Measured scan of single mutants.
Amino acid sequence: MLYRITVRNADGEKLEIVVEMSEDEVRALAEELRKAGYEVRVEPIPEGEEP
């Protein structure tokens, strides 16, 4: 499935990426980023919607 991941650092800089991963993989990635001090938001992209 496609997911949009938005990551912000302490300075407020934002990075937005689209990935194709399983829900478990995305959850693990988000958890690791949060542990590293980043603010993370994950949104699933519905099938048929443009990323």
Rank of each mutant, 00 (worst) to 15 (best):
M1N: 06
M1H: 05
Y3A: 01
Y3R: 02
Y3P: 00
Y3E: 00
R4A: 02
R4P: 00
R4L: 04
I5A: 00
I5V: 11
T6N: 04
V7Q: 02
V7L: 15
V7P: 00
V7G: 11
R8T: 11
R8P: 01
N9V: 07
N9E: 02
N9A: 09
A10P: 10
A10D: 05
A10M: 08
A10N: 14
A10W: 12
A10C: 06
A10F: 09
A10V: 06
D11E: 09
D11I: 14
G12D: 03
G12I: 04
E13V: 15
E13I: 14
E13S: 14
K14G: 06
L15M: 08
L15S: 09
L15Y: 14
L15D: 05
L15W: 08
E16L: 12
E16S: 09
I17W: 14
I17P: 00
I17K: 04
V18R: 06
V18M: 08
V18E: 06
V19L: 06
V19N: 01
V19S: 03
V19Q: 03
E20W: 15
E20Y: 15
M21A: 06
M21Y: 03
M21K: 04
M21L: 12
M21V: 06
S22V: 07
S22M: 11
S22W: 10
S22Q: 08
E23F: 09
E23I: 08
D24S: 13
E25P: 01
E25T: 07
E25H: 08
E25C: 04
E25S: 08
V26E: 00
R27E: 10
R27I: 10
R27T: 09
A28Y: 13
A28E: 04
A28M: 08
A28F: 11
A28C: 02
A28I: 09
A28H: 11
L29A: 03
A30N: 01
A30H: 02
A30D: 01
A30C: 04
E31T: 14
E31Q: 14
E31D: 06
E31K: 10
E32M: 15
L33I: 05
R34N: 04
R34W: 05
R34G: 05
R34E: 05
R34Q: 06
K35H: 07
K35F: 10
K35Y: 06
A36F: 13
A36I: 06
G37M: 02
G37H: 04
G37R: 02
G37Q: 01
G37D: 01
Y38N: 04
Y38L: 05
Y38S: 03
E39F: 14
E39W: 14
E39R: 12
E39Q: 13
E39L: 12
V40E: 00
V40H: 00
V40L: 02
R41V: 04
R41H: 08
R41T: 08
R41W: 05
V42Q: 01
V42F: 11
V42D: 00
E43Q: 11
E43N: 07
E43T: 12
P44Y: 07
P44C: 06
P44H: 11
I45C: 06
I45P: 03
P46G: 14
P46S: 09
P46N: 11
E47C: 03
E47N: 15
G48R: 07
G48T: 14
G48D: 07
G48M: 14
G48F: 11
G48L: 13
E49N: 11
E49W: 09
E49Q: 09
E49T: 09
E50S: 11
E50M: 11
E50N: 13
E50K: 14
P51R: 02
P51T: 09
P51S: 12
P51Q: 08
P51K: 03
P51N: 09
